[in-house]
Design a protein around this nucleic acid. Structure first.
Lengths: 257, 257
DNA sequence: GAGTGGATTTCGCAT
DNA sequence: ATGCGAAGTCCACTC
């Protein structure tokens, strides 16, 4: 028999809420607390949030999220690894989440608590993600012709002076090729970064060096910038790369690596 | 009298859960659903998440978060603006969150539902944050001597070729000064970016040009890089800037702006 | 432990 | 709409 996945307590008194919360934290349970609160944060920056109704989530790893009724992001939070302290002063429940490295403190004060729920979530499910920049790189390694006919790859993530080159190879005319991969629209930064890499490589070889920006699209004006910098552009969709990997992942790539 | 801030339903049947969820979404309420589910996502990338117990949050603005029992970040999500569809197939409740621009779809399938809670959160509280890069810029504008004695500022957010210079001025010897501000440890990128801007400005003037990197700290090796590039560094803490703004925000800054 | 760069980044601002 | 850069970014990975 499995432990009950959750307990629910509506409209608890502050003392009762505090008891549930401390118990849950000590037993490594997750918590959801809904109520009216204000929040102060001091650490890498400082912030204050005035009174309002919010959702507080405390997780098993000691992370904490304060969510408003709108927005993808929490308005306040604490990354994993917090130490928690709770206290009751009058009718106010306070929760402190402290972190070292960096030293930062988040304090929440509830003047009304509508719900406290302690959770024991059983979750062993695997998460898998496709069509990342890494997938694009793998697809290109498995099938260099995606970038250019006759292209031969030498190394990947080759380290040159100021940073990394995503992929590094030789074209059919024997020129060195540096490839910068972006999984979404490439902006000015990507072009300038590639130009820097290319310059850096040029300094260390007498051979001709080409830079190719691989991305699904370039931002407005960047094509012109690429031309001015003497760089090439090859359009490539990350989703197409994911498809290619799905079909041929076991073929060429393993050999290459 | 205010509306009841939340309703709670434990262990609902799929049909019942579906009804509550649709009702809540149509009334622009937020939702918390806890249960055992699997998740598929297709859009900017693709992902799949196997069966496990999680917390689903749907917000009033049509954003959606799937949280596991650990981690600051949601394992799956959808930004604000979704359209939702629910359905029941056998004992499975499905929730679809669709988005245009970009076109992406997230599908959640619950085979067990422990809790459904619909929330009407009243939250008008102001959020304020201090010690951002913007605060550093404001502090420098209000008090240029923070960077250097005798420094006179001309403008800020000045457009130069590849981007924007944070602050732009003249030092006590009449040399042009461009300032790049970082609120935390400045890395190689910051130094190279400033160098690019400095080069760009040098090309458009015959006057001497200095670049100053303002940050609480520079990363290892970056000081050497700055020297090599002929750039200066001025240590400045964002928290000190926030203090200065707190004391003197109404003094020099308003005049400058 | 620090540094570096990607992310389904999100978010806000300016063009 | 698109582009661009900051973020208390978080996160994984390398040195």
């Amino acid at each position: 028999m499995v432990a009950k996945p959750l307990s629910v307590c509506e409209n608890p008194a502050p003392k009762e809420a505090s008891k549930i919360i401390e118990e849950a934290i000590s037993r490594r349970k997750a918590l959801i607390i809904i109520g009216s609160c204000w929040v102060d944060y001091h650490g890498r920056a400082s912030s204050s949030l005035e009174l309002g109704e919010r959702i507080l989530m405390i997780k098993e790893d000691g992370s904490l999220l304060v969510h408003r009724s709108v927005g993808y992001e929490p308005v306040n939070w604490q990354p994993p690894g917090c130490i928690f302290q709770t206290g009751v002063t009058g009718d106010v429940l306070s929760i402190r989440a402290l972190r070292r490295k960096p030293r930062e403190a988040l304090k929440i004060y509830f003047d009304k608590i509508y719900l406290v729920s302690a959770l024991s979530l059983a979750d062993e499910g695997k998460f898998s993600l496709h069509a990342s920049e890494e997938d694009m790189q793998k697809a290109i390694l498995a099938q260099p012709s995606l970038v250019e006919k006759g292209l031969k790859l030498i190394t990947y993530e080759k380290k040159v002076e100021p940073g990394f080159v995503d992929v590094y190879g030789v074209d059919e005319d024997g020129r060195m090729v540096i490839i910068e991969i972006k999984r979404k629209t490439a902006g000015r930064e990507a072009a300038l970064q590639l130009a820097r890499y290319a310059d850096s490589v040029k300094k260390s070889t007498t051979r001709e060096v080409r830079g190719i920006l691989v991305a699904p699209k370039v931002a407005r004006g960047v094509q012109k910038l690429l031309t001015a910098l003497g760089l090439d552009f090859k359009q490539l969709d990350p989703r197409k790369c994911a498809e290619i990997l799905g079909r041929s992942e076991t073929k060429g790539l393993r050999e290459f690596l």
